[in-house]
């Protein structure tokens, strides 16, 4: 018998996921929102995180804070008691351990919860993980089943198609579908190439990643280089201005402004104020 490949919209009612936020441990949680009806009025309410079951892409130039954001998300979720599968393609697992420990201490998070709830796949050392997406996905599936994870971080997805960017679309699509199949909320970290504008959603592989995923978060940094910028931002020449912006999200409404953020000495992200307010500050 041929399986029915179509359905009426009303048949999806029971299958539609509930919309709520999965906390990143940053102010970004307040920048996603949902619309609700209250006493015949439409009201906008903060979601409290990235949308549940979404797959979000974080892109930015080197040293813009992408990995730090991804790690903070993992620590926050682990601290809330949710299991996180962290696929590290760039940083070896032992370095990741140290980074998690420092951040957990700074954020006053019980590190034993992080240790218990974060499961790491170390793809940085083993070439087969990076060269054979099937091997990585089989391993991820086993880890998801065994540890009942609800969140997945891949840092970075770019590392899985480093020397064959023409395959970016197929590879990202496979991992995106994989996370949807296994009902995971996901973060893909993706790197920018030097020719790509820093403030856009474009990343290695072109716009392939941004088009496939549910939304993109762009992280950027700007070095204050001249007197004009010094006057505009009121920061001394040589200082760094960091911004974060939700470039798009197809699942929920969101703020579109660039926000200023700082990186703490322990490597945690602290989102402060919209860029426009920062410029107008007294």
């Amino acid at each position: 018998m041929v399986k029915k490949e179509f359905c009426k919209l009303e048949e999806l009612e029971g299958k539609a996921p509930e919309i709520f936020g999965v906390s990143t441990g940053t102010k970004l949680d307040q920048l996603f929102w949902k619309i609700e009806k209250e006493k015949n009025k439409i009201v906008k309410k903060p979601l409290g995180g990235i949308p549940y079951l979404s797959v979000m892409n974080i892109t930015g130039i080197p040293d813009s804070g992408k990995s730090l954001f991804a790690e903070q998300f993992a620590i926050t979720q682990a601290n809330e008691g949710y299991k996180v599968l962290f696929v590290t393609v760039e940083s070896p697992a032992n370095f990741l351990y140290t980074s998690f420990k420092t951040k957990a201490e700074y954020l006053k998070v019980d590190f034993s919860k992080v240790v218990n709830n974060v499961i790491v796949i170390d793809a940085s050392a083993k070439e087969e993980f990076r060269e054979n997406p099937k091997a990585l996905m089989d391993t991820m599936a086993e880890a998801i089943k065994e540890y009942h994870t609800t969140n997945v971080v891949i840092d970075s997805i770019t590392g899985l198609y480093e020397h064959k960017e023409m395959m970016a679309r197929q590879i990202v699509r496979k991992f995106f579908n994989f996370l949807k199949k296994w009902k995971q909320t996901g973060l893909f970290v993706s790197q920018k190439r030097s020719a790509q504008a820093a403030e856009t959603a474009e990343a290695a592989g072109g716009l392939a990643v941004a088009h496939i995923v549910d939304g993109t978060i762009v992280m950027d940094k700007k070095l204050i280089e001249n007197k004009w910028e010094e006057n505009l931002y009121r920061l001394p020449v040589g200082s760094t201005l960091r911004t974060i912006r939700i470039d798009g999200c197809r699942l929920t409404g969101h703020d579109t402004k660039p926000w200023i953020f700082e990186i703490s000495p322990a490597g945690t992200i602290d989102i402060l104020t919209p860029l426009e307010k920062f410029i107008r500050r007294k």
């Binding site: 034993s112 240790v115 499961i119 796949i121 170390d122 083993k126 391993t139 599936a141």
Partner: peptide
């Protein structure tokens, strides 16, 4: 404290 680290691929079915 030890973090769970998976270092080897678990392949269910090879190519």
């Amino acid at each position: 404290e030890k973090m769970k680290v998976i270092k080897e691929p678990i392949i269910k079915e090879n190519v």
